[in-house]
């Protein structure tokens, strides 16, 4: 399996040797399927933000904080911060 950097290197080589193809999407085929899938999916480093034990609603945090006698940290964004933001 190609890692993200090596996949990128292959594409960069392609871009250098065939400039006309530089903006062409890698074609999705049975052969490229796993490479493209793994390139898009987050790696371990990119999933570290999930180490924070996020509740997905403010009220869930209010309920738990009231019981646990702790303050609340609320990350509030346009679009759900745990999803499409």
């Amino acid at each position: 399996m190609l890692t993200r950097p090596s996949f990128l290197a292959c594409l960069a080589t392609l871009a250098l040797t065939q400039p006309a193809l530089a903006q062409d999407a890698p074609r999705l085929t049975e052969r490229t399927y796993a490479q493209l899938r793994d390139y898009v999916l987050p790696d371990k480093e990119e999933e570290r933000w999930r180490n924070v034990d996020w509740k997905s609603s403010y009220w869930d945090a209010v309920v738990e904080a009231q019981k646990a006698k702790k303050p609340i940290l609320l990350w509030a964004m346009n679009g759900h911060p745990l999803g499409h933001t």
Binding site: V52, D53, W54, K55, S56, S57, Y58, D60, A61, E64, A65, A68, K70, P71, I72, L73, L74, W75, A76, M77, N78, G79, H80, P81, L82
Partner: peptide, 8 residues
């Protein structure tokens, strides 16, 4: 804290 993320 008790951490939460939510749509604003």
């Amino acid at each position: 804290f008790v951490a939460a993320a939510d749509e604003v």
